[in-house]
Design a protein around this nucleic acid. Structure first.
Lengths: 253, 253
DNA sequence: TAGTGGTCTAGACCACTGA
DNA sequence: CAGTGGTCTAGACCACTAG
């Protein structure tokens, strides 16, 4: 038989669809432009809406699209580079820090955090909430855990809560000598509170950056920062002092 | 009316489902254990299979579950820490490098790579393929782009392709003086070839680590490494020389 | 060959946005 | 209010794995 073996492994429709859409985005659309709605696109490509959505989800995951309920689907600008450089071995809150203190409470940390801090479970710690804004939009939310062995409970001294209290804890941190730090990056999904702060739906993919700060031979603080995975590219500053030419900056729609 | 406002913002079923399953995983299952199949789980929770799958997808994204077609859904071990330390400013292929050379060809790089290399488009470069194995399973696939301005075309000299040729290019790299490097991490989805090497389906979430190597005032090489996002936690070695106590290692099922 | 997860359909209703 | 994306259903068939 002269049957040429085309598509011996037929790719899924949504995968092919994603490729077609991706090429269309490159050639026929500009950043910020709004796409036809999902029902129309599905009809145009002759697939069910669920199948089309599978393709759109992938493209959103890759930072090519941005979807907002009640509004529509728009072409996303290139991901912005967000510096999480390892060169600056400084405490959170040091001069030049790009984080904004939001709040601070004293509470028992999650089990995983307690383990990393070596602190006994149920032992309350400072929990400082901070947020980070870049190019005019929120990109990350952070929870900073500081055990009382590092910074004693100052509930009675300072403001009961809010940014002022957060700043007070950060100020105390600066007085310790930082001996080193430790970073890890992994994929996660946004908890409800983080999602709200990041202007995303719960479960949205995020890059979780966990930083351990060491002082006095112990883990003196633990930072868990969640970055929007769709809009952010985490950059680790150039090592070696070479000056780098960066690509075009993110531009407004 | 004495109506207490419960669930003023009712959470989606799949979200609640994910929470329930997550807790069940913590308390009633052990690593490697196989879950009931999707149809049964859906029936047990009284939801459609698609809804259940939405919850499972989230849990898989978070590295809690592992699903394999034809086999079933199993409880995943904790993510393994994979070192991508920034301290070692060395060329790829230097002693201690954990990557395995797989292949090497000479071809025109993708547009995005050509831009980063400043090389003219259509200008062929060495493309070295390498893979990385940790704890007995593949965790990452890498494409290393080396322009001919860094390492001249040695097609005529060495083996036509294969690991030997890859090693030859890496050897040549060592002879240059490395001036610095530059890293970025972002979320991506596995291309078909990478997916195959990582034993995942195309489109699986991956962490893309892009490294630029600088020498002679230029970008002398570019590495694009894709790590399995479900099983890997990228770690950046401790800064400051503090010795760290790590958690329990990944264990076989 | 039986059983699993992966893909796909054609609907329905809901939550949210902006005019 | 109309229109958008988000959730959910109850099916169907396919691709793969292992006994």
């Amino acid at each position: 038989m002269g049957t040429t073996q085309l598509e011996s492994v037929p790719e899924p429709k949504y995968w092919h669809l994603k490729t077609v859409l991706s090429e269309a985005l490159d050639s026929e659309f500009t950043v910020g432009e709004i796409l036809p709605n999902e029902r129309e696109l599905a009809a145009r490509f002759g697939v069910a809406r669920a199948t089309l959505r599978q393709a759109l989800e992938q493209l959103e995951l890759e930072g090519r699209l941005q979807r907002r309920r009640g509004v529509g689907t728009t072409v996303a600008p290139p991901r912005m580079g967000v510096d999480v450089g390892t060169e600056r071995h400084t405490w959170p809150g040091a001069p030049g820090d790009t984080w904004q203190p939001v709040d601070c409470v004293v509470a028992a940390p999650p089990a995983a955090v307690a383990e990393a801090l070596v602190t006994d479970r149920h032992e309350p710690v400072h929990i400082v909430r901070r947020s980070r804004v870049s190019h005019g939009q929120p990109v990350a939310a952070e929870l900073l855990y500081v055990p009382h062995t590092t910074v004693p409970d100052l509930t009675a001294i300072d403001a009961p809560s809010g940014p002022a209290r957060a700043r007070a804890v950060l100020r105390e941190l600066q007085r310790r000598e930082l001996e080193g730090q430790d970073r890890a990056v992994e994929l996660g999904s946004a908890r409800a509170d983080d999602a709200k702060e990041l202007d995303r739906l719960p479960g949205a993919p995020v890059l979780v950056v966990t930083t351990r700060f060491f002082a006095e031979g112990r883990t003196a603080a633990l930072s868990v920062a969640t970055y929007r995975a769709d809009t952010c590219r985490l950059t680790f500053g150039a090592s070696g002092g070479v000056e780098i030419h960066h690509g075009p900056e993110r531009q407004a729609s």
